[in-house]
Nucleic acid binder design. Structure first.
Length: 210
DNA sequence: TCATTAACACGGG
DNA sequence: CCCGTGTTAATGA
């Protein structure tokens, strides 16, 4: 099912030959559909996901306070939370949901550990991913701490447009409110305001950024 | 001032 | 009829 030719299309620039072969040997290809829940809260992680294409949103969960979008994962990314979970053999503190359909390679935890010492390119990849996720988190925190809801909404829309590779955003006000952890009334009001400013146009069930 | 909750009207599918 | 949207009124941080 997994063959080297196929993998090379996505990962050639990232890893050396032998590592690609190992990935072919132990990795499992998984396709996912839009809105599929890939990792649930409190789930034990046994695979590390490597994203070939598509986008996945990572949500932080809080019992009292609902959920909040942390960041998106795209082609070539892997989940930093998963990596810490794997190394510490911990359960997940996040939820991963498919934003679009796509494919991932699942790599068993033991292998990811083993490769760290064996392949420089893997080591670089892991640290790099970690660094990138940390940066993303910092951006999210800045967003939360220093921007008003309108600014957060604008950034959110731009990010969603970017991962979906489309200016059309097929989300309802309710869904957006949920991901930004605010109420729908506010989203409706702000979207209306942004529409008046000429930042976007609205249709039922979708928004287009101009 | 701006967010939240509840309530209601309107319209499309 | 149900859902998504627009709006208002009351309350709170």
């Amino acid at each position: 099912m997994l063959d080297k030719e196929f993998l090379s299309i996505y990962l050639k620039s990232l890893f050396e030959e032998e590592l690609l072969e190992e990935i072919v040997k132990v990795g499992r290809l998984k396709s996912f559909e839009k809105n599929e829940i890939l990792i649930q809260l409190d789930q034990t992680i046994i695979y590390m996901p490597l994203i070939l294409h598509g986008a996945i949103r990572i949500m932080r969960d809080d019992e009292e306070d609902g959920e909040l979008l942390l960041y998106y994962l795209e082609k070539g990314d892997t989940c930093a939370m998963t990596m810490t979970c794997c190394l510490g053999k911990k359960i997940s503190t996040i939820r991963a949901i498919a934003e679009t359909s796509g494919q991932v390679i699942l790599i068993p935890v033991q292998k990811m550990d083993e490769w760290l010492g064996k392949y420089p390119s893997w080591r670089a990849f892991v640290f790099n991913s970690y660094q990138e996720r940390l940066d993303e988190m910092m951006r999210s925190i800045d967003n939360l701490a220093f921007k008003d809801t309108k600014g957060r909404l604008q950034n959110y829309l731009i990010e969603v447009a970017s991962v979906n590779k489309s200016r059309l955003i097929n989300k309802t006000h309710t869904e957006i409110a949920y991901e930004l952890n605010t109420s729908r009334v506010v989203i409706s009001r702000l979207l209306k305001a942004l529409e008046k400013e000429g930042f976007l146009s609205q249709q039922r069930n979708s928004i287009s950024i101009l």
